[in-house]
Design a protein around this nucleic acid. Structure first.
Lengths: 309, 309
DNA sequence: TGGTGGATATGCTGATCGCTCATGGAGACC
DNA sequence: GGTCTCCATGAGCGATCAGCATATCCACCA
């Protein structure tokens, strides 16, 4: 029995998605095919590669070892394809960045603009995603850098081996985005009790964080009037007076007219930390350049927030 | 259509053997299968990978580009197999050395012994071969270093791209190995005319060098009494008085009793240079250590030869 | 405690893939 | 010009693989 290229590709995708089923649909196969391929890979390597849990699979030590090498192999082959098909080695470098949704509005575009001026030849590809999906992508080798957001206590985003490198870039305090004409618009700050009864605009709930967008730890049962995942939608709903939502002041530079940000009293505990996360070890030059740009933009945003305080 | 692992493995083997047929039998396939696999690989990559010549194939630019990446990918997978099956990362490093046959008697074993003392954890694997086969192996990534022997003019061992790194280690003058009791044994030197009529022990002839072992450029038709490829055989045939043969004094430390080395007059032109050849670029630490050991042993042998002169 | 939903594993089938055998064609060397 | 070596290709067959449908397992929840 013999390892197969398709098997390794699927392994990488499974490592990234955390689930046979998700990997299958990402690759356009059926779950059955993925299950068989992984079974074949386990037989080929003679090792158990996954711990099967209900809710998904997790790589074993052997699985991580194989993944580490498979990533190298697949990257080499993808480089070969690029070389043969497209531009013959003209590229000055590639970086792959992942980020949490809110970062896509300000930090990431600004960093890209800055990077494009300094290193116009750099090819940066980005991807939005949740913390677990981005972390898996880092470990699967399909991302070089990830911007993650964390809340206290700021634990490492996973407990796998080897531990990820986490570099805090910025801390911001949560605030509420309110309509300019509404009752809270001109207030210096509002109390938790005041906003408890307001109509909220939330993100579609997940199992873990059922009320993303609603102020955390609100007393009573909040009334969620609107549900949207997209920030542009949410902010314009706020501007239209449809409700209020929780946001970080990093969005300030891009809020539409008609939206105000108001701090919340005793907000100290509700801090969100933005960190630059990557696999341990040396970083390629293009990734370093992007990391520098991100640090710079994060510092600029920190200054803005300081002015706010 | 999709690149395949087997296709890449065969590509590497073809690059190393220079021939579909040879690669096929090396891998236990039919020539037909190799031809089809390479056709499929060319279709998958959309590029012509080989220049077909009668007598073999040569990689095109695209072929070299693909090979370069394929070597990386295959090495990663082989590393994965080693990690999963055998010793879990206990190895301190691996080096693969190729050498021309005469080097296997003295230089290589001594360098290995020295290296084993200094770095006992190093895993060195070696392989004997001809210059073209070793050069192809270097380019195919299955060798890290190669000891090659060359005669004047000392051209680069091939003209492919990128050029190989060639570091001369040692120059030795050819001599004849004669039986201790024979007519030439006690002579300070012999002339070409004297040895022209002697019974020779030669290596099985190839197309290019039909008379390896016989003094080059001998007048008339030499009488080849024995044919053997193995040095131990040849030297003991000499010791038995069965004939004489051409050799380099680097073998002196290991000649059996009953064999004398005698220089030949006007030997100046018949110099053989031993070089350490490798792909350009940085060398891994284990390979550097082996290279140092080889340089050291070569220098020691050069001293011995100086004493001889 | 039993139902439900999401996850992986597996028997079966049709189509594809890949290897072998055998043959053909092209060039180099003697 | 013969011969040798090498690569290409048509036909056939055996193994492999993806898909479908289904079974199974487990956590969660009422």
């Amino acid at each position: 029995m013999e390892m197969t290229l398709l098997g390794l590709r699927i392994l990488r995708e499974v490592a990234e998605r955390g689930t046979f089923t998700a990997a299958a649909e990402a690759l356009g196969y059926t779950q059955s095919a993925v299950s068989r391929q992984m079974a074949a890979l386990e037989q080929a390597t003679g090792a158990r590669l996954f711990d099967r849990h209900p809710g998904g699979v997790r790589l074993t030590g052997s699985g991580r070892a194989l993944l580490r090498n498979a990533v190298v192999a697949l990257a080499a082959l993808e480089a070969a394809e690029r070389e043969l098909r497209g531009a013959e080695k003209v590229e000055g470098g590639r970086v792959r960045l992942g980020f949490f949704p809110t970062a896509g509005a300000v930090i990431v575009p600004r960093a890209l603009a800055m990077l494009c001026q300094e290193h116009p030849h750099l090819q940066v590809t980005t991807r939005e995603g949740t913390t677990p999906s981005l972390v898996r992508a880092l470990r699967a080798g399909t991302l070089d850098l990830a911007l993650l957001s964390s809340r206290p206590p700021h634990r490492s985003p996973d407990t796998d081996d080897p531990p990820l490198s986490v570099e805090p870039l910025l801390e911001v305090h949560l605030a509420v985005a309110v309509p300019a004409g509404g009752p809270f618009a001109e207030r210096g700050s509002v109390s938790v009790e005041e906003i408890a009864g307001a109509p909220w605009i939330a993100s579609p709930g997940t199992a873990n964080e059922p009320l993303l967008g609603v102020w955390p730890g609100l007393p009573g049962r909040p009334t969620v009037r609107h549900t949207a995942r997209d920030w542009l939608t949410k902010l314009h709903l706020v501007a239209a007076g449809a409700g209020i939502t929780t946001a970080t002041p990093t969005l300030l530079p891009v809020v539409p007219p008609g939206v105000r940000f108001v701090p919340v009293e005793r907000v100290a505990e509700e801090v969100r930390r933005v960190s630059l996360v990557r696999m341990p070890g040396p970083l390629k030059a293009p990734a370093q350049a992007l990391a520098r740009a991100l640090r710079r933009q994060a510092a600029d945003l920190a200054d803005v927030e300081d002015l706010e305080d």
